[in-house]
């Protein structure tokens, strides 16, 4: 799956880090880095992280969602 985080919007609340630490990491107190193409097995985890983001900065590939729906 493919994701991108709008790091202008990100304010380092780190909810995503708590929910999916394999995908999202903080460097220091506030600078977020992440794996942009996580394994599909982590989809639910990443979706939860995106839903929990207080500023809704995590965007997930919708095509992947469509493919999953069709499968």
């Amino acid at each position: 799956m493919h994701i991108v985080v709008d790091l202008n919007r990100c304010q380092g609340y780190a909810q995503c880090v708590f929910l999916a630490h394999q995908i999202f990491r903080l460097s220091g107190d506030e600078a977020l880095t992440y794996e942009p193409n996580p394994d599909d097995a982590r989809r639910l985890q990443v979706q939860r992280a995106a839903a929990a983001c207080p500023v809704q900065a995590i965007m997930i590939d919708r095509q992947d969602d469509a493919e999953r729906g069709a499968a």
Binding site: M1, H2, I3, V4, R25, S27, T33, Y34, E35, P36, N37, M59, I60, D61, R62, Q63, D64, A66
Partner: peptide
């Protein structure tokens, strides 16, 4: 990510493809 997590070796360079939101 190229000058950050990719350079650090955490994320592969070919793992940076952008998500698609539209057909």
């Amino acid at each position: 990510p190229l000058s950050k997590q990719v350079l650090k070796g955490w994320v592969q360079a070919d793992h940076t493809q952008l998500p698609r939101f539209q057909e």
